[in-house]
Amino acid sequence: MHIVEKEPKSIVAESYRTLRTNLQYSSFDGEYKVIVITSPNPTEGKSTVAGNLAISLSKGDKKVILIDCDLRKPVLHKRFKLSNATGLSDIILAKETRVIVGQRYNENLIVITGGTVPPNPSEMLGSKYMTNLIAALRELYDYVILDTPPIQLVTDAQILSAKADGTILVVKAEETKKSSVHNAIDLLRKVNANIIGIVLNGVENKGNSYYYEDGKV
């Protein structure tokens, strides 16, 4: 279970609510509806942040859809205890915009899992159908959260950041190297991604396991 549900009164859960509030005020005019979550490297907590943020956003009256765009190593179905029999890769392969296969997690949150691991993830995510799918979801939901692979490993996060309204970069305290952060930012800037914030994850020894910095870095 995600910490915003398991420990709703914790400092970490409150930090996610702060992130939610910052996004809602920042996107008052609908500027940040499609949001990419990525990290420089694996195991820095991007999927944890994506899941908790999506749940936090759904606790109000906002309609949220969370999509596992890490088609190489999908994990959201495990985090949310959902079936991964049919997911994003299967939707793209079917090229059917009228039928979007998602699973309801709560009243306001739909999750699309990764689905069958395809041989060509980058091509699928960069396809015209994926662009059309994001456009369709933008009309149906208040927030579209895209959990993407680490940006230093593959081009998927760059591809999707170019289609999104904003990108949040997740880094891990005392683990992510400064050079990795700068390289990740450079890669995002190469596709004109709008970096709307950085989440510093895993700072338990400082009394908080999460920190959000809004910013043009």
Results as ranks from 00 to 15, higher is better:
Pro121Gln: 12
Arg98Tyr: 11
Ile112Cys: 05
Glu107Lys: 15
Gln103Phe: 00
Pro121Met: 10
Gly102Ile: 03
Arg104Gly: 02
Pro119Asn: 09
Ile110Trp: 01
Thr131Ser: 12
Leu109Ile: 05
Gly102Asn: 05
Thr113Lys: 01
Gly114Gln: 03
Leu109Ala: 13
Pro119Glu: 08
Val117Phe: 04
Tyr105Gly: 04
Arg98Trp: 04
Ser122Thr: 04
Arg98Phe: 11
Thr116Trp: 00
Met124His: 09
Val101Thr: 14
Glu107His: 14
Gly102His: 01
Gln103Tyr: 00
Pro118Thr: 10
Tyr129Pro: 03
Met130Leu: 08
Thr116Ala: 07
Arg98Glu: 15
Gly126Pro: 06
Glu96Asn: 14
Val101Pro: 07
Asn108Tyr: 07
Met130Phe: 11
Ile112Thr: 02
Gly115Lys: 05
Thr113Trp: 00
Ile110Tyr: 03
Tyr105Val: 15
Lys128Cys: 03
Ile112Tyr: 01
Thr97Asp: 10
Val101Asn: 13
Val99Ser: 12
Val99Ile: 14
Thr131Tyr: 10
Met130Trp: 06
Thr97Gln: 05
Val101Leu: 13
Pro119Val: 08
Ile100Thr: 07
Thr97Cys: 07
Gly114Trp: 06
Pro118Val: 11
Pro118Lys: 08
Asn106Ala: 09
Asn120Arg: 10
Met124Val: 06
Tyr129Gly: 03
Glu123Ala: 10
Asn108Lys: 15
Thr113His: 01
Asn108Gln: 12
Gly126Phe: 07
